[in-house]
């Protein structure tokens, strides 16, 4: 357990020394700011025609999910791919650290960094609260940000697993992004054509927009994201273990 925290701490602090992570964080907050501004501007225009239609917190939370899909691969791509390229994985795997501790530690470091970004983004609902009267409904803010954290946990866990497959960061990035987009759009065809519910259930966004974003806390969605994170961590551990046998 202690070594797991050691690895997590190292990964977390490493984000603050690499320009790529700063760039990702900067883009995340910048794009979010632009979307926020555009939404506020649009709502202001609209309020002249339809008074009383103040924007809710969904104008912040919904774009954040999309941004996570693109930012997380950039933040997780390095986690194990870099160790494998540099050969430092040999030191980690010959240290008295269990493979699971290594994977969970790596994941935790990246998850905490993404969580930090999400927490920083709480500034936007606070700002929105100042802009609209009589203030915003804080229910959806709480569930929305909780949902974002859960989704981030899943995405970073999957990203960690994909990173452990590669020696090359760029390959890890592309593969992770492809996986996320696939999961993101999984429910799309069945949504428009009827079809099976299974695809919708597996869909990453489905569990967010209909519930968390609307202030609803459904245990099914919590379980979906938590099991997604567990699956990613399990897969990552298995991948590292099988690497030893090659």
């Amino acid at each position: 357990m202690r070594t797991m925290w050691t690895i997590a701490r190292r990964e977390y602090s490493r984000y603050f020394t690499t320009p790529a992570a700063y760039l990702a964080a900067f883009l995340f907050l910048l794009v979010l700011g632009i979307i926020f501004y555009a939404n506020i501007a649009a709502s202001t225009m609209r309020s002249f025609m339809m008074p009383g239609s103040a924007p809710g917190v969904e104008i912040i939370v919904n774009p954040m999910t999309t941004l996570l899909v693109f930012i997380v691969p950039a933040l997780t791509m390095r986690l194990l791919a870099e160790e494998q390229r540099m050969g430092t994985i040999e030191l980690l795997l010959t240290s008295p650290v269990r493979d699971a501790e290594l994977i969970v530690g790596k994941w935790l470091g990246s998850f905490l960094f993404v969580a930090t970004l999400i927490v920083i983004a709480l500034l936007y609902p606070v700002a929105l609260n100042q802009l609209v009267s009589p203030g915003i409904d804080w229910g959806p803010v709480i569930t929305g940000f909780l949902g974002l954290l859960l989704m981030a946990a899943t995405l970073t866990a999957l990203g960690t697993a994909v990173s452990s497959l590669f020696n090359n960061q760029i390959a890890a990035f592309v593969a992770t992004l492809a996986l996320f987009l696939l999961l993101w759009l999984l429910g799309f065809p069945s949504q428009s054509m009827g079809g099976s519910n299974l695809w919708q259930y597996l869909d990453l966004s489905h569990h967010f927009y209909d519930t968390f974003a609307r202030g609803i806390l459904d245990t099914r969605d919590v379980i979906y994201y938590l099991s997604g994170a567990a699956l990613g961590l399990f897969a990552g551990t298995v991948i590292i273990e099988t690497r030893r046998w090659r």
Partner: peptide
């Protein structure tokens, strides 16, 4: 163990690296 390739983290200072490896062990 000292592997042939001497894998080290280039972005760390010498002492930080040793402390990190020590913590892992």
């Amino acid at each position: 163990y000292l592997p042939e390739t001497v894998p080290l983290y280039n972005d760390m200072s010498v002492i930080d690296y040793l402390i990190y490896m020590g913590q892992l062990r």
